[in-house]
Amino acid sequence: MGLMKPTRLNVNAPDARCPAHAQKDHLRIPREKIGILLANLGTPDDTDYRSMRRYLGEFLSDKRVIDYPSWKWQPILQGIVLSVRPFKSGAAYRSIWNEEAGESPLMTITKQQTAAIRAALAAEYGDRVMVDFCMRYGNPSTQSKVAELTAEGCTRILFFPLYPQYAGATTATANDQFFRALMEENWQPASRTVPPYFDDPAYIEALAQSVERACAAAEHKPDMLICSYHGLPQRYVTEGGDPYHCQCQKTTRLLKERLGWTDSQIMTTFQSKFGPEEWLQPYTVEEVARQAEKGNKRIAICAPAFSADCIETLEEINEEIRESFEHAGGEEFLYIPCLNADPLHIKALVGQIRTNLAGWT
């Protein structure tokens, strides 16, 4: 490992000053603040081949995501996957791209969430708290944002992975990257990470109200609500002890109880299978077809594991999975958007931040 980079304090910040009783030549130091760093999965910078290859290369090289030995996986990734998949993924991203802003919907929504949380916390804590966001893969990087917060005088940082349910491939790898970023700082801030919040009543309430609004606005009430979560290889749970599957099941149960529905009206499925291994089941793309064949011609589908709409919801669910349902005879497919910057969602996230700031403010 190389030498640590010195922490570059912003000595020209408006609130920078020399500490009391310091020598005259002491550096000006920004006033101490608390940083809130929100973290999401990531997004390519553009939809062209090179941007997609760079993004997918970083994502699919993460040992938390694909844990095969490098000698076995990297030749496949570099020689086959990254030669073909960037074209397919680029086309998928182009179908949902925010052309006006020149960015992916995930980026747009994460900016909206950050702005809403920043406004809520400013009303409560003033300028003592800074709020920003980073991406695990792509830009803005976790390392760059940790460096910016420390430069602005954040001596404490609360790191918040925006994943309601914990998984090694989501929450843990985001935390890994945060800790790596801290290793680059000579003057490290004190740090905390926000734990999963899948059973937070405020989060469940936000989910429930989003379902109720969508169903009330639909022409007909759906026969079935499918809660589609991002999948994981089955062995990550059975051999690795990952709690993700249990937390997804509990999320669905709590949502069912809050809605007052029966077991036959709601179920848990998993999407985004990658590679030849067995993943958590049932697979969403197959289950929607089974439901149509069983006579449930009207279904609603939500994605409780995603805090913001992204390629997996806007393209995979609303296009690929919808097509599977309709091809099997389904008639009405209702996609319920992620919670995004909904006020109840922001309220739940701010509540988590407030809880985890205890003793710091």
Rank of each mutant, 00 (worst) to 15 (best):
L349C: 07
M1E: 01
K221Y: 11
N40W: 15
T47L: 03
P343I: 03
M1I: 09
K5Q: 11
E331S: 08
Q234L: 15
V84H: 14
R253W: 00
I34Y: 07
M52L: 14
N175P: 09
N40K: 00
C302Q: 12
E278G: 06
E185W: 15
E315I: 07
S191K: 11
I29H: 10
P189H: 12
S104L: 10
G260K: 13
T114C: 01
V237P: 08
Q209Y: 11
I346V: 12
P44D: 04
D15K: 12
I321T: 08
L158D: 08
S307R: 09
P304F: 12
T171N: 14
E316H: 08
G35W: 15
I29E: 06
Q74T: 04
N98A: 05
A13W: 14
Y166K: 07
R180F: 05
E332G: 07
F133M: 03
E205N: 11
E148G: 13
C246N: 11
G260D: 09
C18P: 07
N12W: 14
Y335Q: 00
R235N: 08
G231Q: 07
V194A: 11
R213Y: 13
R156I: 04
Y229K: 09
P19E: 08
A305M: 11
Q74D: 02
L37C: 01
T110E: 00
F270S: 03
Q209I: 02
P343H: 12
F160G: 09
E287Y: 04
E219R: 14
L158C: 10
L27F: 09
I226N: 11
G275V: 13
D67F: 15
M4V: 00
S104G: 01
L77G: 08
P196D: 12
A169Y: 10
H26G: 06
V11G: 04
N10P: 08
P161K: 15
F159K: 14
M1Q: 10
L121C: 01
F59E: 02
